[in-house]
């Protein structure tokens, strides 16, 4: 089940990199967060870690539902451009993304015996981080950059969950608080932004 969810997490992120429509990108982000939330709940149940179950539930509510819904409403309200063509052409992205995956698995190889649990999960987390960075870089529009930022946060959450067996609850809650503050700041920035962006 964990392998399936992590695979799905990576797959939704990769698909988001090829998306050319804003609402579809929000959907992929939502699915990405959904798999992350279910994964945290599943791991938490297996490890009997209530904190991780709570984090997973908050992830489902805030990231899988709340943030995509809010961003969609905001983009409708501000009339943001919905056509978001990546700067990197699809034929190059098809080569680049597997290269990133291979590179991160190679990078994570020396630490494979040092982490608790499956080392491949760490490699997937690191590759997700790089892919989220790629999402931020490959778009000129602001909305996909925001999704890239949020996906990067998801990748870090995955790393925290898989590499350490869950971060302390205080840190998880703090990260959620910061995420909400990020949304407030993004909202304020977008409201003053040219709607043509």
């Amino acid at each position: 089940m964990t392998d399936f969810l992590i695979g799905l997490f990576l797959a939704t992120l990769i698909t988001a990199l090829f998306t050319t429509r804003l609402y579809r990108l929000l959907l992929w982000y939502s699915l990405n967060s959904l798999t992350l939330g279910i994964l945290a709940i599943e791991l938490g149940s297996r490890l009997d870690d209530r904190g991780m179950i709570l984090s997973g539930t908050i992830t489902l509510i805030v990231k899988a539902v709340g943030i995509p819904f809010f961003l969609k409403r905001l983009s409708q309200h501000l009339g943001l451009v919905r056509q978001i063509t990546p700067n990197i052409r699809i034929q190059y992205a098809i080569i680049l993304i597997p290269a990133i995956l291979v590179f991160t698995f190679y990078l994570a190889e020396p630490i494979s015996h040092m982490v608790e649990g499956n080392a491949n999960y760490v490699a997937v987390s690191i590759s997700s981080l790089f892919l989220a960075l790629l999402l931020m870089m490959e778009h000129r529009n602001i909305a996909p950059k925001i999704i890239g930022f949020l996906s990067m946060e998801n990748a870090l959450f995955l790393l925290g969950t898989t590499a350490t067996g869950g971060m302390p609850m205080l840190v998880e809650l703090g990260i959620f608080f910061d995420l909400l503050m990020a949304i407030v700041v993004i909202n304020l920035l977008l409201r003053n932004e040219e709607v043509t962006s």
């Binding site: 040092m114 960075l133 931020m136 930022f149 946060e153 590499a163 350490t164 971060m167 990260i175 993004i186």
Partner: peptide, 24 residues
Amino acid sequence: MIVGAIAISLVLFGIILIYASAKP
């Protein structure tokens, strides 16, 4: 927002690895 987020994410990334190294 973007570069700051990348920098701060690198810090969190490092913290997670440090935590993973010492948690056992």
